[in-house]
C-alpha cells in the first residue's frame, strides 16, 4: 500500500501545469522546449501510476514510446533553434517575424 491513485494523478497534474506555465510565460525558445519536456514527463508519471493501479504493463510500455518521442522532439527542436538563432541572433520568439 503506497498512496491512493488520485495522489499520483494530482502530482502529474501539478507537473503538467508547471510545464504549461513554462511554455506559455517564458519568452525564450530553450525554456519553451524545456516546458514541453516537463509536460511529457508528467504524462509518463501518470502512465506509470496507472500501470501500477491496474497491474497492467501497458502503461509502462507506453512510457517507453514517450521517452523515444521526447528524445526525437528535443533533438529536432534544438537543431531548429540553433538554426533560427544563427539566422536572427535571438532566442526571443517574437524576433522570428520576418518569414524569409
Amino acid at each position: 500500500m503506497i498512496v491512493p491513485f488520485s495522489h499520483v494523478l494530482v502530482l502529474a497534474g501539478m507537473l503538467f501545469v508547471l510545464g504549461i506555465v513554462c511554455t506559455v510565460a517564458r519568452r525564450n525558445l530553450i525554456m519553451i522546449v524545456l516546458g514541453v519536456e516537463i509536460m511529457l514527463n508528467a504524462a509518463s508519471i501518470a502512465f506509470v501510476g496507472a500501470a501500477s493501479r491496474w497491474h497492467n504493463l501497458e502503461g509502462q510500455a507506453f512510457v517507453l514510446f514517450v521517452l523515444a518521442i521526447a528524445a526525437t522532439e528535443v533533438s529536432v527542436g534544438l537543431a531548429i533553434i540553433v538554426y533560427a538563432f544563427r539566422r536572427t541572433g535571438s532566442f526571443d520568439p517574437s524576433a522570428y517575424n520576418r518569414l524569409k
Binding site: 503506497i2 491512493p4 488520485s6 499520483v8 494523478l9 493501479r53
Partner: peptide, 24 residues
C-alpha cells in the same frame, strides 16, 4: 481536481508491485 477525487476507483491504494525488466 473534482474529477480526480470523485471518480470511483481513484481512491484505491496502489499495491507494491514490481515489473521485472525481463517480463517487461
Amino acid at each position: 481536481s473534482v474529477m480526480v477525487f470523485k471518480t470511483p476507483g481513484t481512491e484505491v491504494k496502489l499495491d507494491l508491485v514490481l515489473a521485472l525488466p525481463r517480463d517487461y
